[in-house]
Design a binder for these strands. Structure first.
Ligand SMILES: [Mn+2]
Ligand SMILES: [Mn+2]
Ligand SMILES: [Zn+2]
Ligand SMILES: [Zn+2]
Lengths: 121, 121
DNA sequence: AATGATAATAGTAACGGTTATCAATAACGA
DNA sequence: TCGTTATTGATAACCGTTACTATTATCATT
């Protein structure tokens, strides 16, 4: 299971993992896949990437990075971490009714080069 | 409908709007509420805030701002826009296989002061 | 090996939120 | 008034995920 996610060069969802693993364990159930993926995430071996408009993706890359999504084809790609202002969290804390501000979620959107090619014709 | 969302001092979801509007139009359907909210969003009068772990929220505040979420109680609050590095999008474009990078989604997480009080006791 | 206790699993139902469908109704224009 | 078009309420379908449960596997003890 871990191997299946780790071998993926993209960001697979539970169904993809299920189909991949099913080839070796033909009658595994989707529920077991979800359980295993949740366990692996909890151990920090993979990361779950929850999305609003589709299934969760499971990320073999556990290093600090962000994601960019093509609004034309939905393709998701890794982008290296960007340096955010050092005082950002602290300034957000001051500007809000929050006692602690310690999480940031950042993602980008745009048009991937493949889609840019297509529409340029 | 617009009035219902605009009067909300928080970020209502479709069900909240439905219940609110039902008091004036008793047999309105949830579908109509969804349709109206989508139309208002398309017109730019409100903004839909899609989330992974719960219903979409509809935001009466159409000005540029971000959101912060309390991981203890789920409370969502507005935070004013932060100044991001000017070259951020361009550097992301260079670091990725994307032809265009023009969208940023940023949100924060933490503990709201009410929850901080509670757990400090 | 046989037993019982405990854990993991497959299969499937239920869930929450949203969208699609469609017949009924309303609005409009000639 | 009539025919056309748009909107609506009611409800089914949808999707991804989680809950449930009966069955099966695992393991320690005799
Ligand atoms: Mn990634
Ligand atoms: Mn807001
Ligand atoms: Zn694309
Ligand atoms: Zn809170």
């Amino acid at each position: 299971m871990l191997a299946a996610v780790k071998m993926a060069k993209h960001h697979p969802d539970a169904k993809w993992v299920y189909e991949k693993v099913s080839r070796e364990i033909p009658n595994i159930s989707l529920g077991t896949v979800y359980r295993a993926l949740a366990a692996l995430s909890a151990e920090g071996l993979i990361r779950e990437y929850r999305r609003a408009d589709g299934p969760s993706l499971y990320d073999p890359n556990t290093e600090d990075h962000f994601h960019i999504r093509c609004r034309s084809c939905g393709r998701i790609e890794d982008v290296p971490p960007v340096q955010l202002p050092d005082d950002m969290l602290e300034s957000i804390r001051r500007a809000s009714e929050f006692a602690r501000v310690d999480q940031v979620r950042l993602e980008f959107g745009g048009i991937c080069s493949a889609c840019a090619e297509k529409t340029r014709e």
